[in-house]
């Protein structure tokens, strides 16, 4: 049997070198494409993203990634959004005004807010934080299936996605008293706010599960 194949979209934003190395380390072959592929050419889709929401979505639109992601989601094959690639899955982003996202997950991307009484809240949230599971068994058959609640992942962000349907929340973390959406899921579409490619062995476990789902 040939190795699973992951297509990483390169729409000109951000550093994809480490994402690609992590995919390879997870036992898949990686295809980094600077021209938008057709949905039927893609086995597993990885949607990266960094920077401001609007700038990232503009780059995705020019490239064709928004239409591709919508079409690909319908195939039932696995899609993983990372960081702003996860935020892009939502309907609306609120960074520097309101902007349309891809719309695969109903809800909005909002700035992290300090918990009541916290006057020393710092953004961006940079660093390692433990992944919390909303309820036992929630991670079964998701890309987080081999992670143990409480294991740490690496985050760099100031915004997070808030799904309308609380069932779409796959994982949370807590940053300085503030509840943070760490991962979302809707059927075959998963998004992680943290960087699995920078989260050590825990991140690689998540990549492996994605690659072999």
């Amino acid at each position: 049997m040939s190795a699973p194949r992951v297509t990483v979209l390169d729409f000109g934003i951000g550093n994809l070198y480490s994402v690609c190395r992590a995919v390879e380390k997870s036992g898949a072959s990686v295809e980094l494409v600077d021209k938008c592929p057709r949905a039927d050419q893609v086995e597993r889709l990885l949607l990266p993203g960094v920077g401001a929401f609007a700038k990232c979505l503009d780059a995705m639109r020019r490239y064709g990634a928004v239409d591709l992601a919508r079409e690909f989601a319908l195939t039932g094959r696995p899609l993983l959004g990372i960081c702003v690639g996860m935020q892009a899955l939502f309907e609306i982003g609120e960074e520097f005004g309101e902007h349309q996202g891809i719309g695969l997950i109903a809800g909005r991307v909002k700035q992290l807010q300090p918990a009541a009484g916290n006057n020393a809240f710092k953004l961006p949230h940079i660093g390692w934080a433990p992944l919390e599971c909303p309820r036992p068994g929630r991670w079964d058959s998701s890309p987080l299936r081999s992670v143990k609640p409480g294991e740490f992942a690496y985050f760099v962000h100031s915004y997070h996605g808030l799904p309308d349907d609380p069932e779409a929340v796959l994982a949370t973390t807590t940053y300085d008293g503030t509840k943070v959406t760490a991962a979302v899921i809707k059927e075959n579409v998963t998004g992680v706010q943290f960087h699995p490619e920078r989260s050590g062995p825990v991140g690689l476990k998540i990549m492996e599960s994605f690659v072999h789902s």
Binding site: R21, A22, K25, R198, G200
Partner: peptide, 11 residues
């Protein structure tokens, strides 16, 4: 580039 094949934390 070599390091990135083996190291999966921020550099």
């Amino acid at each position: 580039e070599h390091t990135a094949h083996h190291v999966f934390v921020p550099i």
